Structure formats: structure tokens, C-alpha cells
Amino acid sequence: MRIVFAGTPDFAVPSLRVAAAQGEVVAVYTQPDRPAGRGRALAASPVKQAALELGLPVLQPETLRTVQARRELRDLRPDLMVVVAYGLLLPPKVLELPVHGCWNVHASLLPRWRGAAPIQRAIEAGDAETGVCLMQMEQGLDTGPVLLSQATPIGPQETGGQLHARLADLGAQVLRDGLALLRAGIRPAPRPQPDAGATYAHKLDKAEARLDWTQPADALARKVRAFHPWPVAEAEVAGERLRVHGAVALPLAHRAAPGTVLFAGRDGIDVACGEGALRIRALQRAGGKAITAADYLNARRDLVASSS
């Protein structure tokens, strides 16, 4: 087969390696280099870096909507286009170009969590499981029929970053299975998505990272996990703005106002919530690095004294 691969972030790299394993990838599409880091120098995407390591040609158009972009893709004579977190919309004329159309690896059990941030939204919502789908792309956003899928439980303390890494590998496995079938002349049977249960995982916004102490502790603990390693939850604790890297919910009955520090010690900093308390275990001060709550309290003995 002649496969064109399109992807951009780390999540897509395992799938790229799977697609390239048979030597069938004729080109890799990824977004243009973007400014990154403190110096804002142009940086290649993770997919571009992996493609160059594999010796694959890389194309980086700003859009696929132009006649020139479609001509370049047509000239590649693709049998299949594999799309994994590419970040650019594929117009109908592009979807129709490959012989077998376009396949997408999506990090949820569709139709739940269509959209940009399915991994984080699944954790934030308290889902017990998630998974990956290999989907036949159509014009709608993540609405195409599912070809293959694989479910996996979400760990009780699993973060967005940890689940992201697991689903990237699981997505590559599902893609490997789909490609093996297609090479054998067996086209995976498309299963239309049901309308029932469809949800949308909107893009993460840094403004969402602020913890609201009037919410239940369980909800805040899930948000801390979901938003790690980005954008990282933030909270006002004893008059100081902190980034919260690790926390657990405590089923603690109290009458304190939300945001009150109930206890501070080696095990963490317990903050009153609308229901229960949130125990902060790892945090970061402005301009500092992530540290344990115990290390933080060495500089905030006032919190230990006031809660003892």
C-alpha cells in the first residue's frame, strides 16, 4: 500500500512508527514549525522529528484547502491516509482522494468525547474507562463509522499525561490491526456511531485550571489529574497562588468555609471544599519548581502552626 500519514504531536508518533514499519509510508504531513520555548525559536513537531529519523519525506502546508495542496496529495497516489491528531481539517475533496479514504485514530470510545481533548475530559468527568477507536473519516467532527476499537480502564489516580501515553500506544496497536486486515484484503467493517451517548470534548483552556473551592473535593481531584501535565491546576491557598501537581479527595466532614486550610503536615495540605477536603500533595510556587507539600511547608511554618 501507499500510505500518507498526517499527525503533529507526541500522541501520533507511535502510530507513525506502526504505519512506517512495512515501508509503505510515502509522505508525512504535519503542521508547520511553530515558535516554542523561551527563545521562541521555530521548532519541528514531534511527528516531523520522528519522520526525519525514519527517512520519510515531510510536507507542511498551512492548509489542505488549496488546489496546490490537493495536487501534491494526488500526485502521491495514496491508497490510504492515516490521520492522528493532525490539527488541520481535511476538506471533502481530500477525504475522497485515497483509494480507501482516510482513517483516524481517536482517543476515546466514540461517540463519547468527540473533539479536541477526549483524554482529559474523560478523567475530569470521572469515567471508569476510555479507549481508542480507528474511525473512517467523514465531513463531521469525529462522526465517522468505527472500524476497530479497544477499551481500557482509567486508573483511580491516573493523570492526563499518563493516560495520554497509554492511549498513544493503544491507538498504535489498533492501527496495526487495521492495517494488517487491509493488507490481507479484508476491509474492517464500518460500524455507524449511535446518536445516543455523544459528547463533545472541547479544547483545554488555561482559564479552566483555576480550582473553585466551593466545588466538591472529588471534582477538584479529578481536575488536578486531568490537567496534568498541562495546563496544571491552580489554586489560592492561604493567600498564595499555587499550581497543584498532585492531590487526592478526602471524604471529610467539616463546617469550614471553602478554601480554609484544615490541616498542614507531612502528608499534605488539606483544604476545605464545598463537600469534603482536597489534600494537596505536590505543588509549585510562582517561579519555582514542583515540590512536595512537605517541602513547601518547610518555608510555610505558619500553616503548620495554625492548623496544629
Rank of each mutant, 00 (worst) to 15 (best):
I3F: 00
F5H: 05
L16V: 13
R17C: 03
A19E: 03
A21I: 05
G23Q: 09
V26F: 08
G37M: 12
G39V: 04
P46S: 10
K48Q: 15
Q49D: 08
A50G: 03
A50N: 01
L52Q: 15
P61Y: 03
E62C: 11
L64Y: 06
T66M: 11
R71C: 10
E72C: 06
R74K: 11
V84P: 11
V84T: 01
L97V: 06
G101C: 08
W103D: 07
W103H: 02
N104H: 12
N104R: 08
L109D: 04
R114S: 09
R114M: 13
A117N: 00
P118D: 02
I123L: 13
G131T: 10
G131F: 05
Q139F: 12
G140R: 12
G140L: 03
G140Y: 02
P145T: 04
Q150N: 03
A165G: 02
G171D: 11
V174R: 14
L175E: 08
L182I: 10
A184H: 08
R191S: 13
P192G: 01
P192C: 11
A196T: 06
L204F: 02
D205N: 10
L211W: 04
P216G: 11
F227T: 07
A233I: 06
E234C: 08
G246W: 12
V248E: 15
A253Q: 13
A256I: 09
D267Y: 05
D267M: 08
C273E: 12
G276L: 06
L278S: 10
A286R: 14
G287P: 01
K289T: 09
N298E: 15
S307E: 07
